[in-house]
Simulated assay, not measured.
Amino acid sequence: MQQSSPITTLFLDIGGVLLSNGWDRAARKRAAAEFSLDLPELEERHHLTFDTYEEGKLTLDEYLFRTVFYEERPFSRDTFKDFMFAQTEPYPEMIDMVCRIKADYGIKIAIVNNEGRELNEYRIRKYGLNKFVDFFISSCFVHFRKPDADIFRIALDIALVAPQEVLYVEDRAMFVSVAEGLGINGLCHQDYASTREQLGKWGLAV
């Protein structure tokens, strides 16, 4: 085990970092085409209710009732959910790099992400994130969602670390900025190569 970094803990986003986004605008556009839905109507209903789903205050079925199944459809809810789950793709290089860093440096790995419970749990288990992540501070579990700074305060408490010990890897600059406002070190992820280089500068070379 190497011991050359001031960082004891990585906070990581999932969508855009370890996996593709689970249910983003592009996925909804594909769904509208696949199921002959009115895309503007789907988008409006989605934006009115998705934050509540991500905060763990709605089930996936309730979210879908508000956005898709508020009227009769020629397809089932299970068929639509299967389509939603199938939109995820893993980023194997990023997952492998995080696993190597954990093995080489013995640091803690925590997920800090916005996601609804059913999508979150499916993605975690499907791609084995629970095999190397120590803590999941997901919006659906803690009922706060980024950019609310409280989700980062909860993550610090759960991981029992000081902000200066943490490096937060996230693809959205605003969320990185919020974390940095609490004293957490930020790394705005763009691609595997640049993130690997930046991790090396923090003493986490792989």
Score class of each variant (00 low, 15 high):
Thr49Ile: 09
Asp171Ile: 14
Ala155Arg: 00
Thr8Gln: 10
Leu42Ser: 13
Phe50Arg: 15
Glu89Ala: 09
Phe144Gly: 15
Gly203Cys: 09
Asp24Phe: 07
His143Gly: 14
His189Ser: 01
Lys146Leu: 10
Lys201Gln: 05
Ala32Met: 08
Thr52Ile: 05
Asp13Val: 06
Pro90Ile: 12
Pro6Ile: 02
Asp134His: 02
Ile7Asn: 01
Ser139Tyr: 04
Ile101Cys: 08
Ile151Asn: 07
Asn185Trp: 08
Thr67Cys: 08
Phe144Cys: 06
Ile158Phe: 04
Ile101Trp: 00
Tyr91Gln: 01
Tyr168Trp: 13
Tyr168Cys: 08
Leu18Glu: 00
Cys188Leu: 15
Asp150Gly: 12
Val133Asn: 14
Glu34Gln: 08
Val166Ser: 01
Gln87Lys: 08
Asp24Ala: 13
Arg125Leu: 12
Thr9Gly: 00
Phe83Trp: 12
Ile109Thr: 13
Glu170Asp: 09
Ile14Thr: 13
Glu55Gln: 04
Phe80Ile: 00
Phe175Cys: 07
Gln164Arg: 15
Glu170Thr: 11
Ala103Asp: 14
Val17Phe: 00
Trp202Ala: 14
Ser138Met: 14
Leu182Tyr: 02
Ile7Pro: 06
Phe75Tyr: 10
Ser4Arg: 14
Ser20Trp: 00
Leu199Met: 10
Gly116His: 02
Ala149Ser: 12
His47Phe: 05
Arg66Lys: 15
Ser177Lys: 05
Lys201Thr: 11
Ile107Val: 07
Ala149Leu: 02
Trp202Phe: 11
Pro163Cys: 06
Arg30Cys: 13
